[in-house]
């Protein structure tokens, strides 16, 4: 565990809190893509199935393989799952009337199908768990596309929404630094699938980061895209 990895995870965790805070404080989920949030629940559900493995070890009192890192990962995985399901729940219950569904027009099959095919072809092991893990990595890389499309459609984002997007995009950028660090310091550490997907994921945020920093520098509350 290095400083980049822990910062990335905390930034990712912060992104959930920012979004939940925004929704609770403004009683609105305007400007937030339900489709992107739904994809994140799918991403975490597919990726964290190994929670059952850890749970299995715990209930059989098999603690030999449970390390501090396992406990940390397990705690964070449960938080990420709970937060993403809670966001989707809020957007479909009490905040449904404020949802930007009419402008959230991205066709999810355009990312779901290619990610599924790629996961079946390019994976480390042809097992169900490994394919679902790989699928989740590919899907996460592009899951922000409905949100970006909504942002372009709207032309601007309020302050909390833009902070949320900065956190959710920035966390993967920090993971890239973490992977470079691990590659340099740990023998045989490499995971090309995660690296390439992580690079694509960060690159998709490229324009957004630019406008976000312009906004921060100019001290504006809302992020505006050029018309």
């Amino acid at each position: 565990m290095n400083i980049f990895r822990i910062s990335a995870d905390l930034l990712h965790l912060a992104s959930f809190f920012i979004l939940i805070f925004k929704m609770k404080a403004t009683k609105s989920c305007k400007g937030i893509s339900f489709k992107t949030q739904l994809m994140y629940t799918l991403v975490f559900t597919c990726r964290y199935l190994d929670l059952f493995h850890v749970l299995g070890m715990m209930i059989t009192f098999n603690f030999a393989h449970i390390t501090g890192l396992t406990l940390y990962n397990t705690f964070m995985k449960i938080l990420f799952l709970a937060a993403s399901y809670y966001i989707v729940y809020l957007m479909r219950t009490e905040l449904k009337s404020t949802s930007d569904d009419a402008r959230d027009t991205f066709v999810l099959w355009h990312i779901l199908a290619p990610c599924a095919v790629l996961a079946l072809i390019f994976n480390a092991q042809f097992t169900i768990l490994e394919i679902l893990w790989t699928f989740s990595i590919y899907l996460e890389a592009v899951a922000v596309m409905p949100q970006l499309m909504l942002l372009i459609e709207t032309g601007e984002a309020d302050s909390l929404s833009s902070h949320y997007m900065f956190a959710v995009g920035g966390y993967r950028a920090l993971y890239l630094v973490n992977w470079v660090y691990r590659y340099a310091t740990e023998p045989y550490y490499s995971n090309w699938i995660a690296w390439i997907a992580g690079f694509v994921q960060t690159a998709l945020f490229g324009d957004f980061f630019y406008y976000y920093f312009v906004k921060i520098m100019s001290g504006d509350a809302a992020l505006k895209l050029p018309t």
Partner: peptide, 10 residues
Amino acid sequence: ESDDELHDEL
């Protein structure tokens, strides 16, 4: 080896 060790990141 657990899955957690294979994928030790989030």
